[in-house]
Write a protein that binds this DNA or RNA. Structure first.
Lengths: 214, 214
DNA sequence: TTTAACATCCCCTATTTGTGGTATTGTTTA
DNA sequence: TAAACAATACCACAAATAGGGGATGTTAAA
């Protein structure tokens, strides 16, 4: 089965050299080549690719916006970002937008073919320095991932009330929201405090958010 | 400049075959080979490696615990995890513990040399499927990363007070904590609410934690 | 079938918090 | 140097929250 590949890049030379490179592989088929991501959804519908090579810096619509809308419409398409930039922000925005790989353009020529195959086989090709950035970011965010998640045995109703509290509603507003009386809200809150071992709204919100209880 | 490499792996065959593989590279030097991470800190001091190949599953002390303590003591040593496991938990625990790369053992033979060089050059070699898991994890955690971080121009003192509130202290306790009067705390709180555009403790805590203001 | 947990509602009291002011002092900056 | 901000402190009143009860009906588990 061949790979259907599309390119978005505003640089004509880049598009042409990639086209030439892809043509050396008998099982690669370049089904689309676009200088602009303005109509990327329509373009993708037209050419129906499996894999998209996406430049980040393009006029009008950035590659990051493009990958976001493409992945929303076609989650199974794999997008490989390619750029000269490797600042943290662009890297993480791309990944969060749904890119499955991120490579620097200086590595284009020699490795692109391998990277595309790796992508197709369920891998996530990244330039070495990008991969390092990604790991560093995860290490920084480690506390966010490693949440000690006790189970406080809150009932469904109690979780609802707690969610309202975290969203900043007063007891009175929670009563309205859940169509119960103020006194019932108070009963739930008392029970929540007991179960979480807290004694105030501030502590409850803090604990709920820290331990992702809502 | 040569690479000083140490191995931790409980399987003697693995250690020997890696040793053999490394010996084919004139600039690689195997400075230590250990079947156990019990004394990993002492071992590392003794053999002084630049790079460590760490097996995950070892008796007594796991590779994850080992990398955690090694990175704590010697942050500049690069650790490459190698394992047959690729469950999410072990992958992320390893990365959070400070590993700079993570490769599956079935790819050992042919690629290990390249991976070690990549690691040494500031990259983070990962097996393709591992890289994909890492990106998926980041995408899932995207909301945690993409914090719209307004600047509310809180003064240093106001941030202190806000931190106390988030930690669940009452105004009275904050007064004691910061050695100011109760009324001053209330003044700060008023100002904080004004700047954050909130009207209650719950909202303040919620906003402060969501936007990582403390 | 008794018990336990849950959801609902009510009362009383005390404390904490929210809102509106005012005021002094020192520092920074336009 | 005047204006703006920051940190401190106080007062008064209103509203919200916290803690102690008690009560009822339902449902699910032992």
């Amino acid at each position: 089965m061949g790979y259907r590949i599309a390119i978005f890049d505003d640089n004509k030379n880049v598009r042409e050299s990639i086209s030439l490179l892809l043509s050396t592989q008998h099982d690669f088929e370049l089904v689309g080549s676009f200088s602009n991501a303005k109509d990327c959804i329509a373009d993708v519908i037209t050419c129906n690719p499996d894999i998209i090579l996406m430049d980040i810096e393009m006029p009008d619509v950035s590659g990051i916006q493009a990958v976001e809308s493409i992945k929303k419409e076609f989650p199974s398409i794999q997008v490989l970002m390619q750029t000269v930039f490797e600042d943290d922000e662009r890297v993480f925005d791309s990944i969060c937008a749904g890119a499955s790989g991120y490579i620097l353009k200086n590595q284009l020529n020699n490795k692109l073919i391998d990277f595309i195959r790796e992508l197709h086989d369920g891998g996530s090709p990244m330039s070495p320095s990008i991969a390092r950035r990604v790991l560093n970011k995860m290490q920084l965010a480690a506390p966010d991932f490693k949440v000690e998640t006790h189970n406080y045995h809150l009932s469904a109703r109690e979780k609802e009330v707690l969610a309202c509290i975290v969203n900043g509603l007063s007891h009175k507003m929670i009563a309205e929201e859940l169509s119960i009386t103020y006194e019932t809200v108070r009963s739930h809150v008392k029970k929540i405090y007991e179960k979480l071992h807290v004694v105030s709204i501030a502590q409850a919100v803090s604990k709920a958010m820290k331990e992702k209880l809502v």
